[in-house]
Design a protein around this nucleic acid. Structure first.
Lengths: 339, 339
DNA sequence: TTGTACGCGTTATCAT
DNA sequence: ATGATAACGCGTACAA
């Protein structure tokens, strides 16, 4: 060193106790000279805290989780934390491996975006006393702090929008079993029925572009039973798949069928016509989730088991239009509905 | 503990020296009972290695870097490493902060995707002896190991494709100063000129959808000097912006103008017509970069300063078509070209 | 205002 | 095949 004891160096940096200005200068100069910086590993060992946050996501290359990661990182760096990227790749073994990593690295807290409805409970429990916040998906039976978008409200907004345009028959393309998707579908159906309309048919499909395409194909490919003029897909990628299928089937969007999505991903505003969708601010969800976690950490506690619901917004673009009842509105046999 | 010395416990786990089967069992049982797992911080301190990789990206929510992160994580976890997410947000101060983080956390190695042409050299140098691999962008004057897609070849493929379709006049929308974009534009121009065609006009624009749109607007909005039938944009988002502008200007794609992009992002295959583009495998780029880094780490060295170039592939979709010279091929005053 | 001594949990070295 | 001891680098209670 340059003149003083290790103790003084430590306090000069942490400010935990008074250090004379002259001494502090000498310490800082010495640091500059040798390019010294405290080794985190040693600090961890001495203090018990790592200032490291674990971020568990199923697929970081998925735009949703990438956006979430951005928000989490933002809040983390702001508070002097770093983020350990844990990509479970929808693989349970990988998830368990990361659980072990999180324990052995003594991560201070975890932001857990499960992304699929499998065995969350077990995961959350096995974190033991490590503080966790859940994002996007609630975990049944677990009293953990969670941050979700108002999925049901989003479904309701989509329904009200379509109803306002005169639509009376719709189908919903949703990924059954996925909490967020179910909530969106349920919110849509509830609003739909509250207007005295016949409950929308729910079609199951993967939470992807192909899933949306396949769902439409499976539900409507063989039969010509198109008693609907609108589709609500529980995410934008599915909605794009739905639109592709409709176009391939020779139908016009929104001329024949209106389509509403969910998320407001970048493509939604790029395609022509633009996709009408329910926008959720995923980055902000990440910022808030990590913020709550960090606040709890600062207080030496786990975050309170509150369910934080973030509002969503309907973005009206070009894939929805007023429904007009016309002769060509469906296959011949459906016209008896209008008698 | 349960019966033996700390030394034996350590060796029972590491296998660094023979331990009797009975003893190993007792150790394992004891571990299960108390849910013990070695604290990484202490291992770091004792061994000097953290098995942590730093991943520096400018924007994790950008599909390119998210995909890259996925590949890096994959290779890392495979080799028992973890990934520290460093999102610089295109902010130099943030980048310096992360540099300090990387040093203090004693990260074993760094995967550095600079993403912009500012001050890389300084960054790489200040990492000191920490092994680095560069991804996507080379760093001038730095003899670091780098992994890039064959950008020039991609540009060439795009040019050859358009030339094969009979196009003779093209413009290139590129982000000047961005190495990868410049390489793509240069590869295109070189191939173009090698066929004796008049060099393509290069228009500058941000590396985004809006950048592509604005570039077209700036270059062609006021004048009607459309002496071209094809556009090569150096990434897909820009290409989408270009297409949007063309459509807004009342032009047909590919009827009037053919458009080629670069990257093959998901949207490219979703939009109608599909975007003809040059595909690069970003995930694989990440896997290879991290793999080389880890291999070097295992050998106790820095990765050799080789420039690894990964091949790219032309994906022909619907935004390119044969160029036919017709009356309506341009504004009236341009027809004198055909005399 | 500064210094001393100890502990954090693990591994390397040497000894048995 | 196992045990004892000394680091690793830092924070902090305690003493000065």
């Amino acid at each position: 060193l340059a003149g003083v004891s290790p103790t003084t160096v430590s306090h000069a940096l942490s400010g935990q106790r008074p250090v004379s200005a002259a001494t502090r200068r000498r310490v800082q100069d010495a640091m500059e000279q040798v390019g010294y910086s405290p080794r985190r590993a040693a600090q961890n060992l001495a203090m018990g805290s790592t200032r490291l946050l674990g971020l568990i996501v199923p697929d970081i290359s998925n735009g949703f989780f990438a956006e979430l990661a951005k928000g989490v990182e933002e809040a983390a760096i702001e508070a002097g934390y770093n983020v350990l990227l844990c990509n479970s790749a929808f693989n349970h073994e990988r998830e368990l491996l990361y659980l072990e990593t999180i324990r052995s690295r003594a991560v201070d807290g975890v932001v857990y975006a499960a992304g699929s409805p499998t065995s969350h409970r077990e995961m959350v429990d096995s974190l033991g006393s490590i503080p966790v916040v859940l994002v996007d998906e609630d975990v049944l039976g677990s009293s953990a702090c969670s941050f979700v978008s108002d999925n049901a409200e989003g479904g309701r907004l989509a329904a009200e929008h379509l109803i306002g345009l005169g639509h009376t028959r719709a189908i919903v393309v949703s990924t059954t079993g996925l909490g967020s998707s179910d909530d969106r579908a349920h919110g849509f159906a509830t609003a739909w029925q509250s207007h005295g309309l016949a409950g929308p048919v729910v079609v199951d499909g993967d939470f992807t572009y192909d899933g949306g395409y396949a769902a439409m194909a499976a539900a409507l490919g063989s039969e010509s039973d198109r008693h609907f003029s609108a589709v609500f897909a529980t995410n934008d990628l599915m909605a794009l798949g739905v639109i592709s299928w409709l176009l391939d089937a020779g139908l016009d969007v929104p001329g024949d069928i209106s389509v509403v999505g969910f998320d407001d991903i970048e493509i939604a505003g790029i395609i022509r016509p633009g996709l009408t969708t329910v926008k959720q601010d995923v980055r902000l969800l990440g910022v808030r989730a990590a913020g709550a976690l960090i606040a709890a950490l600062a207080a030496g506690q786990s975050p309170p088991p509150t369910r934080h619901v973030q509002s969503v917004e309907l973005i009206v673009r070009g894939t929805t239009s007023r429904h007009v009842t016309k002769e060509s509105d469906g296959p011949a046999h459906s016209s008896h509905c209008h008698r």
